[in-house]
């Protein structure tokens, strides 16, 4: 199961990825010429306007979508093999909880499937629910929770088992600022502690800068990588790092990158 690469080795390697959806009204070019390397222990954020292919890229990495061109390896093997090795946890853009399961049983779903013992299931569910501040909601059904709480439950579900890659599609999009700050901190701590590799989609520039070691800026039609910004921030990041000039400088660069992507779109 563990094919984890040592720190610094590339975990996800995309080479000239291309994906065109064949739809009822013509082909949609969702990804074009995406080349990218994510190293072990990286925290990479994807940012870009709606419809630029962020979800699609994550789904390709997760072997939920087949690229129509280019090459991709995950943990040094094909995405399919990586999926079969249960190499990643995926947080979908929607919570996708099963409505007939309680919150605890939703979080325990991957553990059941992967054959963890009862005792270990209980222990892990309790631990991850605590991590997302949902202790006390174990026996509630999803419809009894707010949208943001449901999303947190879906994050807990992805953290419940030990995948060393986390693919997160706008996980904090539905949350208020305070909860978002809290979860951002929690996620950073988890990342520092476990040495996971995280690919993270967001629409928020401060969030991307605060969390990431690298920020990938994308532009739409066709979806392509327009800029990759290396963060110069230290790995230890208190929340007030967001007021430092260094932080604002990186945020500014991301914003410029997004602007360039937009004008690129206008020129077409």
């Amino acid at each position: 199961m563990e094919t984890a690469a040592p720190r610094g080795e590339s975990v996800i390697r995309a080479d000239r990825l291309d994906l065109t959806f064949q739809t009822g009204d013509g082909p949609v070019h969702a990804l074009s010429d995406v080349s990218l390397t994510i190293d072990k222990g990286d925290f990479v954020s994807f940012i870009g306007p709606s419809g630029c292919g962020k979800t699609t890229l994550l789904r390709v990495i997760a072997d939920l979508e087949q690229p129509t061109g280019g090459a991709l390896t995950v943990n040094g093997v094909s995405p399919e093999q990586a999926r079969l090795n249960r190499a990643y946890g995926y947080v979908f853009q929607a919570a996708a909880l099963y409505p007939w399961r309680t919150i605890a049983r939703n979080v325990g779903l991957p553990l059941e499937i992967m054959g963890y013992s009862r005792a270990e299931q209980r222990e892990r569910v309790a631990r991850t629910l605590d991590l997302v501040n949902l202790t006390g909601f174990e026996n509630k059904f999803p419809w009894q929770l707010s949208g943001g709480m449901q999303q947190r439950a879906s994050i807990a579900r992805a953290l419940a088992f030990d995948a060393d890659i986390l693919l997160m599609d706008e996980p904090f999009g539905a949350l208020d600022e305070i909860v978002r700050d809290h979860l951002n901190e929690q996620l950073l701590q988890l990342w520092a502690r476990t040495d996971k590799t995280i690919a993270f989609v967001t629409h928020s520039i401060p969030e991307a800068v605060y969390l990431s070691t690298r920020i990938v800026v994308m532009s739409p039609r066709p979806g392509r990588v327009t800029d990759i910004i290396e963060s110069t921030l230290p790995r230890e990041r208190p929340l007030d790092i967001r007021e430092t000039p260094e932080f604002l400088e990186i945020a500014h660069r991301v914003r410029e990158g997004l602007r360039a992507g937009h004008s690129y779109e206008d020129a077409e």
Binding site: Y88, G89, F92, A96, Y98, I113
Partner: peptide
């Protein structure tokens, strides 16, 4: 999306049946 979730766990057909 509910089926995709099962796919990310590489669940067997029997697991997909009984749990979804």
């Amino acid at each position: 999306i509910q089926r995709d979730l099962m796919r990310t766990y590489s669940a067997t057909a029997a697991q997909v049946f009984w749990k979804l």
